[in-house]
Write a protein that binds this DNA or RNA. Sequence first.
DNA 1: CTGCTTGTGTTGCCATCGCTCCAAAGTCCC
DNA 2: GGGACTTTGGAGCGATGGCAACACAAGCAG
Lengths: 238, 238
Amino acid sequence: MATQADGQPKRARGRPKTFDRTVALHQAMKLFWERGYEGTSFDDLIGAMQISPSSFYNAFDSKERLYQEATEAYVAHAAEWFSGELAAITDTKTAFHQVLNSAAREFTRDDLPSGCMIALACTQARPELAGLRDMMAGYRRGAQTAMAERIHRGIERGDVPKDAKVEALAAFYSALSGGMALQARDGASRERLLEVVEIGMQAWPSAPSESRSRRAETPPHATATGSRIQPARRRPRA
Amino acid sequence: MATQADGQPKRARGRPKTFDRTVALHQAMKLFWERGYEGTSFDDLIGAMQISPSSFYNAFDSKERLYQEATEAYVAHAAEWFSGELAAITDTKTAFHQVLNSAAREFTRDDLPSGCMIALACTQARPELAGLRDMMAGYRRGAQTAMAERIHRGIERGDVPKDAKVEALAAFYSALSGGMALQARDGASRERLLEVVEIGMQAWPSAPSESRSRRAETPPHATATGSRIQPARRRPRA
DNA sequence: CTGCTTGTGTTGCCATCGCTCCAAAGTCCC
DNA sequence: GGGACTTTGGAGCGATGGCAACACAAGCAG
């Protein structure tokens, strides 16, 4: 709640801030999440953040920079359930199942806007916003890449069939997740999304009747190796 | 190409139009498809349509009405492959497979914007655009409802297990389709989307080891019964 | 030709958008 | 307390957005 409730008094020169930067950022994030970048006006922002234009410009450089920061805040929040569940110490299929279930729950919270802030952002934008569009697309690619890496590790561990199409599987579950975000935005219930997840898990590749041999219950390394959500760089369309 | 190349001379009083309304509408549709409603400005529109502001208002009432008309034009176009394939005279699973394959192809055409004009439209918008938002959500619900009806018919025909969760299945394939539109917008290739479809079809419910009994190869009625895409009215979140 | 009807081109209006400027206020160091 | 330093409040600015007004151009009917 307090502006500087953390350890050090953190000596401040000049007039002290009258608002909590983190709280203001959170308010901005919720607005951007709900209405998108273009749909959120400067006045909307300073209204929700309870600050004046000059304070806004002083604390955050511009609307675009604020959006970037808000996105980073969202990613940090989402990483808790996304990267967390994805790197869980279970077999790969269960990890994906849990990630999707978490997505279904997170997309339908009643204390936050529905859906995913990243999934549907800047998909239809004016050319001037190409920078933001690419940034959001990069985050989406990052999540998909993290999924692909998890599947790859599953193959190495032996709990995913060796002939599984890694990239296509990651694209499938990424697409499903994005579609769930869309449905949540359209008002789908949590229960409905959880049912969708159950159906989606039916598509998990089964062993080709022979690689069911050795079951690997112990992961090689339990730490989250490179499963962070980061704005991945563009790959050639393929 | 000509303004009135159809049958009757269609006597026109007053000064004749200097542009083809259908062509102009098509140009507007492509712009809206690419950039969305908010992302397309008045000047963008009259520039692409090659008409002046007054001609714009004369032929189309307002930007919002034009968007509605452009959406209707898109829906009419999409119905050819969506409703068409969905009502195809095959078993239900094959119909869905073909619809999704068509979606993968349509979403990655090089003569039209990528993705789906409906799927990602108005998902993040200012409150003033609630009307458009609801309209687009209605179209999305309409497509999902059409899927649900097709599955229901499949159950009646006997080529879908009786215990299949109709609504959940429709939501799943609707979500997958929306996610594919998103991936297409992010640059996914046609081949990748077709792979995603293959994986998605693995989730189709299999007969519970006993209802494989009578195979129904002849549909009860081959016409497209109520599978048109229409802006369905809102249902209570469930 | 005269008049009616319909489309066209230009100019401009008002609101909003994102942002800037400047004087004043609050806090620290000395 | 004096001055440095930072933040705040509010007025306002240039650009753009969507649109309206109005005079004129181009066709038909008589």
